[in-house]
């Protein structure tokens, strides 16, 4: 793997002198301590340098392997912990030294308000200038040599860079091959880390829920409750008016916030309805309106939190909760009606 150097400067509201980072065989990890997987800034640094971006919340990485840490810190913990360990720290937010660990946050190790735009590959001219300066010193020291001065310069330029990089600069077929190789490497790396992310959510969320659902259906089927359920639910779910009624009931403002959390109820009912459709007790055509009928309460438990995620003002939250809850009583049956009409296309 070839490593390259990037420069990271502070953003418009940021702090710090900026960082220049080059991965090494020991320190080759960009640790993303941001939550929600690898942050785009960490991914970009990894992409440009050839380092590996890893989600710090899911994977343990020894400090010795870390080249830089990307954080989105609200001012106390992460902003101080990593500079304290003298690990280069990049804050997405416009932070400056604050909190109890402020003394450790120094401009040479910390930079903030960093977005994709603040990251750039170190200018090739700068790198080349440094290299040719080195080359001159060397040729003086080396005295007479059988190589011409130009070839010495070219040869020494390779030292701070990697073979593949120099090949890329030379142009022609080799450059194309190297660029193509780097591109393929990037694609494969992204796919692999996506696979890891997919496996994570399957292990943590999907499989446990499957086990729970499997047990639930097992009990329902084996004990014959499914027959009883089918007999009682089928009249409601097997005609359009029943589905309309169901969608109205779940959208009643008193009930909807209770039915909402984690979509647990909608999921269980979805599975039960699915079993009935699979068994032929309900016609396939009713699958679509059913999907909307059992979901009229979606998100009604989460309105204030969802709105505050959108940085809504308290007045907006108080007006918004009622607005969403009340309109649901109308829009939920409308959704079922539209789905019922659309189901004729099935």
């Amino acid at each position: 793997m070839s490593y390259q150097t990037v420069k990271i400067v502070k953003g418009s509201g940021g702090w710090g002198d900026g960082l220049v980072l080059t991965p090494t065989d020991e320190r080759h990890v960009v640790l993303s301590v941001t939550g929600g997987g690898v942050h785009p800034v960490a991914a970009k640094i990894a992409e440009l340098t050839g380092a590996e971006a890893i989600d710090g919340f899911n994977t343990h990485v020894p400090d010795e392997e870390v080249m830089a840490v990307v954080i989105n810190c609200g001012g106390t913990a992460r902003i101080g912990v990593y500079p304290k360990k003298r690990l280069p720290t990049i804050d997405i937010y416009p932070g400056s030294p604050t909190g109890p660990l402020a003394q450790f946050i120094t401009p040479d190790i910390f930079v903030s308000d960093v977005g994709i735009k603040q990251i750039s590959l170190v200018d090739e001219a700068t790198a080349a200038a440094a290299a040719s300066a080195a080359a001159q010193t060397q040729s003086k020291e080396g005295g007479a040599s059988d190589q011409s001065s130009t070839t010495t310069a070219t040869a020494t330029q390779e030292r701070p860079k990697t073979v593949s990089q120099t090949q890329a600069e030379k142009g022609g077929l080799m450059s194309w091959v190297v660029r193509f190789g780097n591109f393929i490497g990037y694609v494969i790396n992204t796919l692999l880390s996506s696979g890891r992310q997919a496996l994570q959510i399957i292990l943590q969320t999907v499989l446990p829920f499957m086990a729970y659902v499997g047990l639930l259906i097992g009990i329902v089927n084996y004990t014959g409750i499914s027959q009883v359920l089918a007999n009682s639910v089928t009249p409601l779910a097997s005609n359009p008016l029943g589905l309309l009624l169901l969608s109205f009931i779940v959208a009643i403002p008193v009930l909807s916030p209770i039915l909402g959390p984690g979509a647990a109820i909608a999921q269980v009912v979805g599975v039960l309805m699915g079993t009935q459709i699979g068994a032929g007790a309900l016609p396939v055509q009713y699958a679509l309106p059913t999907l909307f009928a059992i979901d009229g309460q979606v998100g009604c438990d989460f309105i204030p939190v969802g709105l505050s995620l959108g940085e809504a003002k308290p007045e907006t939250v108080s007006v918004g909760v009622s607005a969403v809850l009340f309109t649901r009583m109308v829009t939920s049956p409308i959704a079922v009606a539209i789905a019922y009409l659309a189901s004729f296309l099935l």
């Binding site: 301590v33 919340f57 899911n58 343990h60 990485v61 106390t76 992460r78 912990v81 909190g99 109890p100």
Partner: peptide, 14 residues
């Protein structure tokens, strides 16, 4: 006077 809470899992440093 500063209490830092983190949900599990969390990197060792934190």
């Amino acid at each position: 006077g500063v209490l830092i809470l983190f949900g599990d899992p969390v990197p060792q440093a934190l």
